Amino acid sequence: MMTNLFSVFDPSTSTFNLPLNWLSTIMGLLFIPSTMWLIPSRHFLLWNMILMNLHKEFKNLLGENQVNKGSTLMFISLFSMIMFNNFMGLFPYIFTSTSHLVMTLSLALSLWLTFMIYGWVNNTQHMFIHLVPQGTPGILMPFMVCIETVSNLIRPGTLAVRLAANMIAGHLLLTLLGNNGPSMSIPLLIILIIAQIALLILESAVAIIQSYVFAVLTTLYSSEVN
């Protein structure tokens, strides 16, 4: 039962035991309509409006003193990739790559290490100042340094676990409810279908929210090293 339940999160397939399910991370690009790339199509205008709003928000988070003026492009691309993979996992029999810590931790850890290396090499004094919040009494400074260091070290873990756990939770709930369908009566089955549709709408919102939260938190961590 548990093996079958978690099989939707298994990256391997029965074809020579190859991890072909990971192809869903990039194969979904084939489903993007060709009109998306034609200017000024409706798809392009809608997506461009979303990207421009994200650019303004990330620019405000990074501040006017950001070193690289095009750095918002990296966080917009991160948001787009995570949201795209989150939505791909809502289709039946499609592997959700963002539900695995292998992917989420790779994204979070690589970005966090990049920020830390850049900050400690180029802004060493600024990074030391961040370890002690302003107004901290002298006697509490050693403890605050320890607390801030630990909170800084667990950042990539919390980013990765938050995204993976939210993706797994919704999919497991949909799977558990769906497995009870064949044994239900007609009235209960109608209620189950309505509940499944509501959960699917909720999961669609979660897919957008979690990708947005991941990108925003990464942007905030980046702004701290400048």
Rank of each mutant, 00 (worst) to 15 (best):
M1F: 13
S7K: 14
N17W: 09
I26C: 01
I32A: 13
P33A: 06
P33F: 13
M36I: 06
M36Y: 11
I39N: 07
H43S: 06
F44L: 04
L46K: 10
W47D: 00
N48R: 14
L51D: 06
L54S: 08
G63T: 07
N65R: 09
Q66A: 04
V67H: 01
S71H: 01
L73P: 02
F79D: 00
S80K: 11
I82F: 02
M83Y: 05
M83N: 04
M83F: 05
N85Y: 09
F87K: 04
L90E: 02
P92Y: 09
I94R: 10
F95H: 05
T96K: 10
T96D: 09
H100S: 14
S106N: 06
A108W: 03
Y118A: 15
H130E: 15
P137S: 11
G138I: 05
I139M: 13
F143I: 15
I147P: 01
I147E: 14
E148H: 10
E148Q: 15
E148C: 08
P156S: 12
G157L: 15
G157S: 11
L163E: 06
L172A: 04
T175K: 03
L177I: 12
N179T: 15
M184D: 10
M184P: 08
S185R: 10
L188E: 15
I191H: 06
I193K: 12
I194C: 08
A195S: 13
A195W: 07
Q196R: 06
L202K: 04
E203C: 08
E203K: 11
V206G: 00
Q210V: 06
Q210H: 06
L220M: 13
Y221R: 07
S223W: 09
S223A: 12
